[in-house]
Simulated scan of single mutants.
Amino acid sequence: MQLHCDTCGRVRTFERPPRPAHPAANRPDLACTGCGTAVAVAPVILLMDRRPRVLLRRPSRRAA
């Protein structure tokens, strides 16, 4: 996968690093093949406003 590496300052190849021996050890999602800088790729989270909408209405004008 080709991504821009902030450390190298250019587009580089990123790959998944080998899995460590310990299964609970943290490992980065992707690492730059040039300098080894790790990047964690997280899913997009959408926050929804669940409050009820307030409708603003103009006061009705009654004919006099």
Rank of each mutant, 00 (worst) to 15 (best):
V54S: 08
R16S: 12
A42I: 08
R61F: 11
N26D: 13
R57E: 15
A64E: 15
R53S: 07
R57I: 10
L3S: 03
R58F: 07
A31T: 14
V41Y: 04
R27Q: 15
R10Q: 08
Q2K: 13
L30C: 01
S60I: 12
T13D: 03
A42E: 13
R16Y: 00
P23A: 10
V54G: 01
A42W: 02
R61P: 06
P23D: 09
V39A: 11
L46S: 11
G34N: 10
R12S: 05
P59D: 12
T13F: 01
P17Y: 06
G9T: 03
A64R: 12
R53Y: 03
R12V: 06
P20G: 04
V41A: 12
C5Q: 02
A21R: 03
E15A: 11
E15C: 00
P18E: 15
P52F: 02
R58C: 08
F14S: 01
P59T: 10
A63R: 14
R27L: 15
H22P: 00
A24E: 15
D6F: 02
P52Q: 11
P28N: 09
C8L: 03
C32E: 07
V39Q: 11
E15M: 08
N26E: 14
G9Q: 06
A64F: 08
A24I: 01
G9I: 04
R16Q: 14
R53K: 12
A63W: 09
C35Y: 05
H4Q: 01
E15G: 00
Q2I: 05
R57L: 15
P17R: 07
M48L: 13
R12F: 00
A25P: 00
R53N: 03
P52V: 05
D29R: 11
Q2W: 02
V11C: 01
L47I: 12
C32V: 08
F14C: 03
V44D: 06
R12Q: 14
R61W: 10
P23W: 04
N26R: 13
T33D: 07
H22A: 13
A25K: 09
R12T: 11
A31I: 15
P52H: 07
A63S: 15
V44M: 11
D49G: 02
P23I: 05
P43E: 11
C8R: 04
L47F: 09
R19S: 13
P20A: 04
A40V: 09
P23F: 04
V54T: 14
R12K: 09
R51C: 03
A38T: 07
V41Q: 09
H22D: 15
L30M: 15
R10H: 08
P20K: 02
P20D: 08
A38I: 00
